[in-house]
Design a protein around this nucleic acid. Structure first.
Lengths: 244, 244
DNA sequence: TCCCGGGATTTTGCATACCAAAACCTGTAT
DNA sequence: ATACAGGTTTTGGTATGCAAAATCCCGGGA
Protein backbone atom coordinates (compact mmCIF):
# COMPACT_ATOMS: atom_id res chain seq x y z
CA UNK A 1 0.00 0.00 0.00
CA UNK A 2 2.11 2.88 -1.24
CA UNK A 3 -0.95 4.92 -2.15
CA UNK A 4 -1.29 7.93 0.09
CA UNK A 5 -4.60 9.30 1.29
CA UNK A 6 -6.88 10.36 -1.52
CA UNK A 7 -7.74 14.04 -1.74
CA UNK A 8 -11.22 15.27 -1.01
CA UNK A 9 -13.27 15.14 -4.20
CA UNK A 10 -13.95 18.54 -5.68
CA UNK A 11 -17.61 19.36 -5.57
CA UNK A 12 -17.61 23.05 -6.33
CA UNK A 13 -18.07 25.89 -3.91
CA UNK A 14 -21.74 25.26 -3.24
CA UNK A 15 -21.98 21.57 -3.88
CA UNK A 16 -25.40 21.82 -5.44
CA UNK A 17 -26.83 24.59 -7.49
CA UNK A 18 -28.47 27.28 -5.45
CA UNK A 19 -32.19 27.78 -5.46
CA UNK A 20 -33.35 30.42 -7.85
CA UNK A 21 -36.48 31.47 -9.62
CA UNK A 22 -39.75 32.87 -8.43
CA UNK A 23 -40.03 30.62 -5.38
CA UNK A 24 -36.78 31.73 -3.78
CA UNK A 25 -37.21 33.03 -0.28
CA UNK A 26 -40.83 32.00 0.11
CA UNK A 27 -41.57 30.48 3.47
CA UNK A 28 -43.14 27.52 1.70
CA UNK A 29 -45.33 24.86 3.17
CA UNK A 30 -42.72 22.17 3.11
CA UNK A 31 -43.83 18.69 2.37
CA UNK A 32 -44.38 16.80 5.57
CA UNK A 33 -41.19 15.07 6.49
CA UNK A 34 -41.06 12.25 8.99
CA UNK A 35 -38.76 13.19 11.83
CA UNK A 36 -35.38 11.47 11.79
CA UNK A 37 -35.36 8.55 14.14
CA UNK A 38 -32.49 9.99 16.16
CA UNK A 39 -34.68 13.00 16.83
CA UNK A 40 -37.56 10.83 17.98
CA UNK A 41 -35.21 8.92 20.24
CA UNK A 42 -33.77 12.17 21.56
CA UNK A 43 -37.23 13.47 22.40
CA UNK A 44 -38.25 10.20 24.00
CA UNK A 45 -35.16 10.04 26.19
CA UNK A 46 -35.37 13.70 27.15
CA UNK A 47 -38.96 13.15 28.21
CA UNK A 48 -38.00 10.09 30.23
CA UNK A 49 -35.29 12.09 31.96
CA UNK A 50 -37.43 15.13 32.65
CA UNK A 51 -40.26 13.13 34.16
CA UNK A 52 -37.76 11.17 36.25
CA UNK A 53 -38.49 7.76 34.75
CA UNK A 54 -34.77 7.68 34.20
CA UNK A 55 -33.27 8.78 37.49
CA UNK A 56 -30.22 10.99 37.81
CA UNK A 57 -27.11 8.85 37.97
CA UNK A 58 -28.71 5.89 36.26
CA UNK A 59 -26.60 4.02 33.74
CA UNK A 60 -28.13 4.01 30.29
CA UNK A 61 -27.16 0.98 28.27
CA UNK A 62 -27.40 1.50 24.54
CA UNK A 63 -28.62 -1.97 23.78
CA UNK A 64 -31.34 -1.79 26.42
CA UNK A 65 -32.60 1.57 25.24
CA UNK A 66 -32.53 0.37 21.65
CA UNK A 67 -34.60 -2.68 22.48
CA UNK A 68 -36.95 -0.67 24.66
CA UNK A 69 -37.58 1.85 21.90
CA UNK A 70 -37.58 -0.74 19.16
CA UNK A 71 -34.72 0.75 17.17
CA UNK A 72 -31.11 -0.15 16.54
CA UNK A 73 -28.15 1.10 18.52
CA UNK A 74 -27.15 3.72 15.97
CA UNK A 75 -29.95 6.27 16.51
CA UNK A 76 -29.67 5.68 20.25
CA UNK A 77 -25.96 6.49 20.21
CA UNK A 78 -26.57 9.62 18.22
CA UNK A 79 -29.34 10.74 20.53
CA UNK A 80 -27.19 10.11 23.59
CA UNK A 81 -24.40 12.22 22.19
CA UNK A 82 -26.75 15.11 21.58
CA UNK A 83 -28.18 14.66 25.05
CA UNK A 84 -24.67 14.96 26.38
CA UNK A 85 -23.88 18.12 24.49
CA UNK A 86 -27.00 19.65 26.01
CA UNK A 87 -26.25 18.56 29.54
CA UNK A 88 -28.84 15.83 30.06
CA UNK A 89 -26.47 12.92 30.32
CA UNK A 90 -22.77 12.41 30.98
CA UNK A 91 -20.94 10.21 28.53
CA UNK A 92 -18.03 8.53 30.26
CA UNK A 93 -15.50 7.08 27.83
CA UNK A 94 -15.73 3.33 27.53
CA UNK A 95 -18.49 3.29 30.14
CA UNK A 96 -21.41 4.85 28.42
CA UNK A 97 -24.13 7.27 29.34
CA UNK A 98 -25.31 8.22 32.80
CA UNK A 99 -28.24 10.51 33.48
CA UNK A 100 -26.71 13.77 34.61
CA UNK A 101 -26.64 14.42 38.35
CA UNK A 102 -27.35 18.10 38.73
CA UNK A 103 -25.56 19.73 41.64
CA UNK A 104 -26.82 22.77 43.45
CA UNK A 105 -23.82 24.72 42.29
CA UNK A 106 -24.48 23.89 38.68
CA UNK A 107 -28.15 24.81 38.97
CA UNK A 108 -27.14 28.15 40.45
CA UNK A 109 -24.71 28.80 37.62
CA UNK A 110 -27.35 27.88 35.10
CA UNK A 111 -29.87 30.20 36.73
CA UNK A 112 -27.24 32.93 36.69
CA UNK A 113 -26.62 32.58 32.99
CA UNK A 114 -30.31 32.39 32.36
CA UNK A 115 -30.82 35.64 34.23
CA UNK A 116 -28.30 37.42 32.04
CA UNK A 117 -29.68 36.11 28.79
CA UNK A 118 -33.32 36.62 29.68
CA UNK A 119 -32.66 40.12 30.93
CA UNK A 120 -31.05 41.10 27.68
CA UNK A 121 -33.85 39.38 25.85
CA UNK A 122 -36.49 41.42 27.69
CA UNK A 123 -34.74 44.62 26.70
CA UNK A 124 -34.69 43.68 23.02
CA UNK A 125 -38.27 42.46 23.12
CA UNK A 126 -39.48 45.73 24.62
CA UNK A 127 -37.72 47.57 21.84
CA UNK A 128 -39.39 45.82 18.95
CA UNK A 129 -42.64 44.15 20.00
CA UNK A 130 -45.65 44.84 17.79
CA UNK A 131 -49.25 45.19 18.94
CA UNK A 132 -49.88 41.69 17.67
CA UNK A 133 -47.03 40.37 19.78
CA UNK A 134 -48.42 42.05 22.88
CA UNK A 135 -51.78 40.45 22.27
CA UNK A 136 -50.17 37.04 22.04
CA UNK A 137 -48.23 37.69 25.26
CA UNK A 138 -51.43 38.39 27.13
CA UNK A 139 -52.90 35.18 25.76
CA UNK A 140 -49.94 33.22 27.06
CA UNK A 141 -50.23 35.02 30.37
CA UNK A 142 -53.86 33.92 30.49
CA UNK A 143 -52.91 30.29 29.93
CA UNK A 144 -50.51 30.55 32.84
CA UNK A 145 -53.09 32.13 35.16
CA UNK A 146 -55.53 29.33 34.33
CA UNK A 147 -52.92 26.69 35.11
CA UNK A 148 -52.20 28.53 38.34
CA UNK A 149 -55.88 28.51 39.28
CA UNK A 150 -56.12 24.81 38.45
CA UNK A 151 -53.01 24.20 40.55
CA UNK A 152 -51.60 22.09 37.72
CA UNK A 153 -47.85 22.07 38.24
CA UNK A 154 -46.97 20.51 34.93
CA UNK A 155 -49.05 22.90 32.86
CA UNK A 156 -47.71 25.77 34.92
CA UNK A 157 -44.13 24.93 34.08
CA UNK A 158 -45.02 24.49 30.43
CA UNK A 159 -46.86 27.81 30.31
CA UNK A 160 -43.92 29.53 31.96
CA UNK A 161 -41.58 28.08 29.37
CA UNK A 162 -43.91 29.13 26.55
CA UNK A 163 -44.12 32.69 27.75
CA UNK A 164 -40.39 33.10 28.22
CA UNK A 165 -39.74 31.38 24.92
CA UNK A 166 -42.11 33.69 23.07
CA UNK A 167 -40.37 36.73 24.53
CA UNK A 168 -37.03 35.48 23.28
CA UNK A 169 -38.47 35.00 19.82
CA UNK A 170 -39.61 38.61 19.82
CA UNK A 171 -36.02 39.73 19.99
CA UNK A 172 -35.50 38.66 16.41
CA UNK A 173 -32.14 37.28 17.47
CA UNK A 174 -32.17 33.63 16.48
CA UNK A 175 -28.82 32.93 18.12
CA UNK A 176 -30.06 34.34 21.39
CA UNK A 177 -33.31 32.39 21.19
CA UNK A 178 -31.53 29.15 20.57
CA UNK A 179 -29.13 29.66 23.43
CA UNK A 180 -31.88 30.61 25.85
CA UNK A 181 -33.83 27.60 24.64
CA UNK A 182 -31.00 25.32 25.65
CA UNK A 183 -30.50 26.92 29.02
CA UNK A 184 -34.18 27.24 29.83
CA UNK A 185 -34.94 23.66 29.06
CA UNK A 186 -32.43 22.58 31.66
CA UNK A 187 -33.57 25.19 34.12
CA UNK A 188 -37.05 23.79 33.70
CA UNK A 189 -35.81 20.43 34.91
CA UNK A 190 -34.52 21.94 38.15
CA UNK A 191 -37.39 24.36 38.37
CA UNK A 192 -40.27 21.90 38.55
CA UNK A 193 -40.07 21.34 42.32
CA UNK A 194 -40.41 25.05 43.06
CA UNK A 195 -43.00 25.87 40.41
CA UNK A 196 -45.90 25.65 42.82
CA UNK A 197 -44.72 27.94 45.62
CA UNK A 198 -43.14 30.37 43.20
CA UNK A 199 -46.19 30.41 40.94
CA UNK A 200 -48.35 33.26 42.15
CA UNK A 201 -45.58 35.81 42.51
CA UNK A 202 -43.99 34.79 39.25
CA UNK A 203 -47.12 35.35 37.23
CA UNK A 204 -47.70 38.72 38.76
CA UNK A 205 -44.20 39.66 37.71
CA UNK A 206 -44.98 38.38 34.24
CA UNK A 207 -47.92 40.76 34.02
CA UNK A 208 -45.76 43.71 34.98
CA UNK A 209 -43.18 42.60 32.44
CA UNK A 210 -45.71 42.43 29.63
CA UNK A 211 -46.92 45.90 30.52
CA UNK A 212 -43.40 47.26 30.31
CA UNK A 213 -42.88 45.56 26.96
CA UNK A 214 -46.20 46.91 25.68
CA UNK A 215 -45.10 50.41 26.68
CA UNK A 216 -41.77 49.82 24.87
CA UNK A 217 -40.05 50.82 28.07
CA UNK A 218 -36.78 48.95 27.55
CA UNK A 219 -35.16 49.90 30.84
CA UNK A 220 -38.18 48.93 32.88
CA UNK A 221 -38.60 45.63 31.02
CA UNK A 222 -34.95 44.85 31.60
CA UNK A 223 -35.20 45.68 35.28
CA UNK A 224 -38.32 43.62 35.85
CA UNK A 225 -36.87 40.61 34.10
CA UNK A 226 -33.67 40.92 36.12
CA UNK A 227 -35.67 40.93 39.34
CA UNK A 228 -37.91 38.15 38.13
CA UNK A 229 -35.09 35.76 37.28
CA UNK A 230 -33.17 36.71 40.39
CA UNK A 231 -36.17 35.89 42.55
CA UNK A 232 -36.56 32.56 40.82
CA UNK A 233 -32.96 31.86 41.64
CA UNK A 234 -33.53 32.81 45.25
CA UNK A 235 -36.63 30.65 45.40
CA UNK A 236 -34.54 27.76 44.21
CA UNK A 237 -32.08 28.22 47.04
CA UNK A 238 -34.81 28.51 49.62
CA UNK A 239 -36.69 25.48 48.38
CA UNK A 240 -37.41 22.68 50.84
CA UNK A 241 -34.53 20.25 50.80
CA UNK A 242 -31.90 22.70 49.63
CA UNK A 243 -28.50 22.10 51.17
CA UNK A 244 -27.81 25.20 53.19
CA UNK B 1 -46.00 -11.73 18.33
CA UNK B 2 -48.23 -10.86 21.24
CA UNK B 3 -45.33 -9.84 23.44
CA UNK B 4 -45.36 -6.11 24.10
CA UNK B 5 -42.26 -3.98 24.45
CA UNK B 6 -39.99 -5.12 27.21
CA UNK B 7 -39.54 -2.78 30.16
CA UNK B 8 -36.25 -1.09 30.84
CA UNK B 9 -34.09 -3.38 32.92
CA UNK B 10 -33.72 -2.24 36.49
CA UNK B 11 -30.20 -1.23 37.26
CA UNK B 12 -30.60 0.57 40.53
CA UNK B 13 -30.57 4.29 41.10
CA UNK B 14 -26.92 4.84 40.40
CA UNK B 15 -26.15 2.01 38.06
CA UNK B 16 -22.73 1.52 39.48
CA UNK B 17 -21.58 1.99 43.01
CA UNK B 18 -20.46 5.49 43.72
CA UNK B 19 -16.88 6.36 44.45
CA UNK B 20 -16.10 6.51 48.11
CA UNK B 21 -13.14 6.35 50.36
CA UNK B 22 -10.15 8.59 50.86
CA UNK B 23 -9.66 9.35 47.19
CA UNK B 24 -13.10 10.84 46.64
CA UNK B 25 -13.00 14.34 45.23
CA UNK B 26 -9.27 14.33 44.50
CA UNK B 27 -8.48 15.77 41.09
CA UNK B 28 -6.53 12.64 40.30
CA UNK B 29 -4.01 12.14 37.54
CA UNK B 30 -6.19 10.07 35.31
CA UNK B 31 -4.63 7.36 33.27
CA UNK B 32 -3.95 8.51 29.77
CA UNK B 33 -6.92 7.80 27.59
CA UNK B 34 -6.82 7.89 23.81
CA UNK B 35 -9.30 10.40 22.45
CA UNK B 36 -12.45 8.88 20.96
CA UNK B 37 -12.27 8.78 17.21
CA UNK B 38 -15.37 10.92 16.83
CA UNK B 39 -13.55 13.63 18.76
CA UNK B 40 -10.52 13.41 16.51
CA UNK B 41 -12.75 13.62 13.47
CA UNK B 42 -14.60 16.55 14.98
CA UNK B 43 -11.36 18.43 15.57
CA UNK B 44 -10.08 17.65 12.11
CA UNK B 45 -13.25 18.83 10.40
CA UNK B 46 -13.51 21.95 12.55
CA UNK B 47 -9.94 22.81 11.61
CA UNK B 48 -10.67 22.25 7.91
CA UNK B 49 -13.68 24.53 8.17
CA UNK B 50 -11.92 27.27 10.11
CA UNK B 51 -8.98 27.42 7.76
CA UNK B 52 -11.36 27.46 4.80
CA UNK B 53 -10.16 24.22 3.25
CA UNK B 54 -13.82 23.32 3.34
CA UNK B 55 -15.61 26.32 1.92
CA UNK B 56 -18.89 27.64 3.24
CA UNK B 57 -21.76 26.02 1.38
CA UNK B 58 -19.75 23.00 0.35
CA UNK B 59 -21.50 19.67 0.50
CA UNK B 60 -19.78 17.23 2.83
CA UNK B 61 -20.32 13.63 1.84
CA UNK B 62 -19.92 11.17 4.67
CA UNK B 63 -18.29 8.49 2.60
CA UNK B 64 -15.76 10.91 1.13
CA UNK B 65 -14.80 12.34 4.50
CA UNK B 66 -14.55 8.85 5.93
CA UNK B 67 -12.21 7.74 3.19
CA UNK B 68 -10.20 10.95 3.39
CA UNK B 69 -9.73 10.57 7.12
CA UNK B 70 -9.29 6.82 6.98
CA UNK B 71 -12.19 5.96 9.28
CA UNK B 72 -15.63 4.49 8.85
CA UNK B 73 -18.81 6.46 8.32
CA UNK B 74 -20.01 6.20 11.91
CA UNK B 75 -17.52 8.51 13.62
CA UNK B 76 -17.87 10.92 10.72
CA UNK B 77 -21.64 11.02 11.17
CA UNK B 78 -21.28 11.62 14.86
CA UNK B 79 -18.77 14.40 14.33
CA UNK B 80 -21.00 16.04 11.75
CA UNK B 81 -23.94 16.01 14.12
CA UNK B 82 -21.92 17.70 16.80
CA UNK B 83 -20.63 20.20 14.28
CA UNK B 84 -24.21 20.98 13.45
CA UNK B 85 -25.24 21.51 17.04
CA UNK B 86 -22.43 24.02 17.34
CA UNK B 87 -23.25 25.88 14.17
CA UNK B 88 -20.41 24.81 11.91
CA UNK B 89 -22.43 22.84 9.42
CA UNK B 90 -26.07 22.56 8.45
CA UNK B 91 -27.50 19.08 8.32
CA UNK B 92 -30.33 18.93 5.84
CA UNK B 93 -32.49 15.84 6.23
CA UNK B 94 -31.84 13.22 3.59
CA UNK B 95 -29.28 15.51 1.96
CA UNK B 96 -26.42 15.58 4.36
CA UNK B 97 -24.05 18.16 5.72
CA UNK B 98 -23.18 21.52 4.21
CA UNK B 99 -20.57 23.85 5.61
CA UNK B 100 -22.51 26.64 7.24
CA UNK B 101 -22.87 29.85 5.28
CA UNK B 102 -22.63 32.65 7.82
CA UNK B 103 -24.77 35.65 7.01
CA UNK B 104 -24.03 39.16 8.16
CA UNK B 105 -27.18 39.16 10.22
CA UNK B 106 -26.21 35.99 12.01
CA UNK B 107 -22.72 37.29 12.72
CA UNK B 108 -24.24 40.40 14.20
CA UNK B 109 -26.56 38.37 16.40
CA UNK B 110 -23.67 36.24 17.52
CA UNK B 111 -21.59 39.29 18.35
CA UNK B 112 -24.54 40.67 20.27
CA UNK B 113 -24.89 37.58 22.40
CA UNK B 114 -21.17 37.46 22.90
CA UNK B 115 -21.21 41.04 24.14
CA UNK B 116 -23.81 40.20 26.76
CA UNK B 117 -22.06 37.10 27.99
CA UNK B 118 -18.59 38.58 28.01
CA UNK B 119 -19.78 41.69 29.78
CA UNK B 120 -21.30 39.65 32.55
CA UNK B 121 -18.19 37.54 32.62
CA UNK B 122 -15.97 40.60 33.12
CA UNK B 123 -18.07 41.68 36.07
CA UNK B 124 -17.77 38.30 37.75
CA UNK B 125 -14.07 38.07 36.99
CA UNK B 126 -13.40 41.47 38.56
CA UNK B 127 -15.21 40.31 41.66
CA UNK B 128 -13.15 37.25 42.31
CA UNK B 129 -9.78 37.40 40.57
CA UNK B 130 -6.75 36.56 42.72
CA UNK B 131 -3.32 38.16 42.44
CA UNK B 132 -2.13 35.03 40.68
CA UNK B 133 -4.92 35.39 38.13
CA UNK B 134 -3.96 38.99 37.45
CA UNK B 135 -0.37 37.96 36.86
CA UNK B 136 -1.51 35.39 34.33
CA UNK B 137 -3.71 37.94 32.61
CA UNK B 138 -0.76 40.26 32.09
CA UNK B 139 1.22 37.37 30.66
CA UNK B 140 -1.53 36.68 28.15
CA UNK B 141 -1.68 40.37 27.36
CA UNK B 142 2.04 40.26 26.67
CA UNK B 143 1.62 37.38 24.23
CA UNK B 144 -0.99 39.43 22.39
CA UNK B 145 1.21 42.50 22.22
CA UNK B 146 4.04 40.45 20.80
CA UNK B 147 1.77 38.98 18.14
CA UNK B 148 0.61 42.49 17.35
CA UNK B 149 4.18 43.68 16.95
CA UNK B 150 4.97 40.71 14.72
CA UNK B 151 1.82 41.49 12.70
CA UNK B 152 0.89 37.81 12.87
CA UNK B 153 -2.84 37.67 12.30
CA UNK B 154 -3.29 34.05 13.22
CA UNK B 155 -1.43 34.30 16.51
CA UNK B 156 -3.26 37.52 17.26
CA UNK B 157 -6.63 35.84 16.95
CA UNK B 158 -5.45 32.94 19.07
CA UNK B 159 -4.07 35.24 21.76
CA UNK B 160 -7.31 37.17 21.81
CA UNK B 161 -9.27 33.97 22.27
CA UNK B 162 -6.93 32.84 25.03
CA UNK B 163 -7.26 36.07 26.96
CA UNK B 164 -11.04 36.18 26.74
CA UNK B 165 -11.24 32.51 27.55
CA UNK B 166 -9.10 32.92 30.64
CA UNK B 167 -11.31 35.72 31.88
CA UNK B 168 -14.38 33.53 31.54
CA UNK B 169 -12.68 30.82 33.54
CA UNK B 170 -12.02 33.28 36.34
CA UNK B 171 -15.75 33.66 36.85
CA UNK B 172 -15.88 30.19 38.36
CA UNK B 173 -19.10 29.66 36.45
CA UNK B 174 -18.55 26.55 34.34
CA UNK B 175 -21.85 26.87 32.54
CA UNK B 176 -21.02 30.42 31.54
CA UNK B 177 -17.52 29.45 30.39
CA UNK B 178 -18.81 26.66 28.26
CA UNK B 179 -21.44 28.83 26.63
CA UNK B 180 -18.99 31.62 25.92
CA UNK B 181 -16.60 29.04 24.57
CA UNK B 182 -19.16 27.94 22.00
CA UNK B 183 -20.06 31.45 20.98
CA UNK B 184 -16.50 32.76 20.90
CA UNK B 185 -15.26 29.95 18.75
CA UNK B 186 -17.76 30.88 16.09
CA UNK B 187 -17.11 34.56 16.51
CA UNK B 188 -13.47 33.83 15.93
CA UNK B 189 -14.33 32.38 12.54
CA UNK B 190 -15.99 35.62 11.48
CA UNK B 191 -13.48 37.75 13.32
CA UNK B 192 -10.31 36.70 11.53
CA UNK B 193 -10.68 39.15 8.62
CA UNK B 194 -10.89 42.15 10.96
CA UNK B 195 -8.27 41.05 13.47
CA UNK B 196 -5.55 43.14 11.89
CA UNK B 197 -7.19 46.55 11.70
CA UNK B 198 -8.92 46.08 15.05
CA UNK B 199 -5.76 44.85 16.71
CA UNK B 200 -4.07 47.86 18.22
CA UNK B 201 -7.17 49.40 19.73
CA UNK B 202 -8.41 46.08 21.00
CA UNK B 203 -5.25 45.34 22.94
CA UNK B 204 -5.22 48.76 24.49
CA UNK B 205 -8.74 48.08 25.70
CA UNK B 206 -7.57 44.75 27.04
CA UNK B 207 -4.98 46.52 29.15
CA UNK B 208 -7.58 48.84 30.63
CA UNK B 209 -9.81 45.86 31.29
CA UNK B 210 -7.11 43.98 33.15
CA UNK B 211 -6.43 47.03 35.27
CA UNK B 212 -10.09 47.27 36.22
CA UNK B 213 -10.16 43.58 37.09
CA UNK B 214 -6.98 43.93 39.14
CA UNK B 215 -8.60 46.79 41.06
CA UNK B 216 -11.70 44.61 41.60
CA UNK B 217 -13.73 47.43 40.14
CA UNK B 218 -16.68 45.38 38.89
CA UNK B 219 -18.63 48.25 37.35
CA UNK B 220 -15.64 49.57 35.48
CA UNK B 221 -14.67 46.12 34.23
CA UNK B 222 -18.20 45.55 33.04
CA UNK B 223 -18.31 48.89 31.28
CA UNK B 224 -14.98 48.42 29.54
CA UNK B 225 -15.90 44.96 28.33
CA UNK B 226 -19.23 46.25 27.05
CA UNK B 227 -17.46 48.95 25.07
CA UNK B 228 -14.79 46.56 23.91
CA UNK B 229 -17.20 44.01 22.50
CA UNK B 230 -19.44 46.69 21.04
CA UNK B 231 -16.48 48.20 19.20
CA UNK B 232 -15.54 44.80 17.84
CA UNK B 233 -19.07 44.49 16.56
CA UNK B 234 -18.86 47.89 14.96
CA UNK B 235 -15.51 47.03 13.41
CA UNK B 236 -17.11 43.99 11.88
CA UNK B 237 -19.78 46.08 10.21
CA UNK B 238 -17.28 48.58 8.91
CA UNK B 239 -14.95 45.94 7.59
CA UNK B 240 -13.98 46.11 3.92
CA UNK B 241 -16.54 44.15 1.91
CA UNK B 242 -19.39 44.50 4.37
CA UNK B 243 -22.77 44.82 2.77
CA UNK B 244 -23.96 48.26 3.82
C1' DT C 1 -34.24 27.61 -27.23
C1' DC C 2 -36.26 26.46 -22.92
C1' DC C 3 -39.00 23.69 -20.05
C1' DC C 4 -40.66 19.25 -18.56
C1' DG C 5 -40.50 14.54 -17.11
C1' DG C 6 -38.82 9.98 -16.21
C1' DG C 7 -35.19 6.91 -15.27
C1' DA C 8 -30.37 6.17 -13.50
C1' DT C 9 -27.33 7.51 -9.81
C1' DT C 10 -25.92 9.19 -5.46
C1' DT C 11 -26.42 9.78 -0.69
C1' DT C 12 -28.52 9.44 3.54
C1' DG C 13 -30.64 6.93 7.46
C1' DC C 14 -31.01 2.94 9.65
C1' DA C 15 -30.42 -2.10 10.58
C1' DT C 16 -27.55 -5.94 11.43
C1' DA C 17 -23.52 -8.39 12.48
C1' DC C 18 -19.08 -8.64 14.27
C1' DC C 19 -14.93 -7.68 16.98
C1' DA C 20 -11.21 -5.75 20.22
C1' DA C 21 -10.42 -3.24 24.21
C1' DA C 22 -11.86 -1.60 28.46
C1' DA C 23 -14.40 -1.76 32.47
C1' DC C 24 -16.87 -4.33 35.52
C1' DC C 25 -18.17 -8.33 38.44
C1' DT C 26 -17.32 -12.58 41.01
C1' DG C 27 -15.38 -16.21 43.29
C1' DT C 28 -11.36 -17.98 45.28
C1' DA C 29 -7.06 -18.08 47.73
C1' DT C 30 -4.40 -15.72 50.89
C1' DA D 1 -10.97 -8.62 55.00
C1' DT D 2 -7.69 -8.05 50.51
C1' DA D 3 -5.85 -9.22 46.31
C1' DC D 4 -5.94 -11.46 42.33
C1' DA D 5 -7.56 -14.07 38.18
C1' DG D 6 -10.82 -15.10 35.04
C1' DG D 7 -15.41 -14.46 32.96
C1' DT D 8 -18.98 -11.12 31.55
C1' DT D 9 -20.82 -6.84 29.98
C1' DT D 10 -20.50 -2.75 27.43
C1' DT D 11 -18.56 0.46 24.55
C1' DG D 12 -16.44 2.12 20.25
C1' DG D 13 -15.51 1.15 15.89
C1' DT D 14 -15.75 -1.53 11.34
C1' DA D 15 -18.13 -3.50 7.49
C1' DT D 16 -22.08 -4.33 4.82
C1' DG D 17 -26.71 -4.14 3.01
C1' DC D 18 -30.73 -1.78 1.74
C1' DA D 19 -34.93 1.38 1.19
C1' DA D 20 -36.21 5.99 0.60
C1' DA D 21 -35.27 10.37 -0.92
C1' DA D 22 -32.87 13.70 -3.42
C1' DT D 23 -30.20 14.78 -7.26
C1' DC D 24 -28.58 14.45 -11.85
C1' DC D 25 -28.91 13.47 -16.67
C1' DC D 26 -30.86 13.22 -20.93
C1' DG D 27 -34.15 13.19 -24.39
C1' DG D 28 -38.71 14.89 -26.16
C1' DG D 29 -42.16 18.43 -26.74
C1' DA D 30 -43.72 23.36 -26.83
Amino acid sequence: MTESVSPLPERGPTGRRTAKGSLAGKSGNRVERPAPLRQVVYDALAELIINRTLEPGQHLVEADLAEYLGVSRQPVREALQRLQSEGWVDLRPAQGAFVHLPTDEEADQLLGVRAVLETHSARLAAACATDEDIKRLWELQDVGMKALAADDSERLVAANADLHSYITELTGNAVLSELIGLVDRRVRWYYTPIARPRGRDAWQEHAALIEAIAAHNVDKAEKIMAQHTERTRRAFHERPGASE
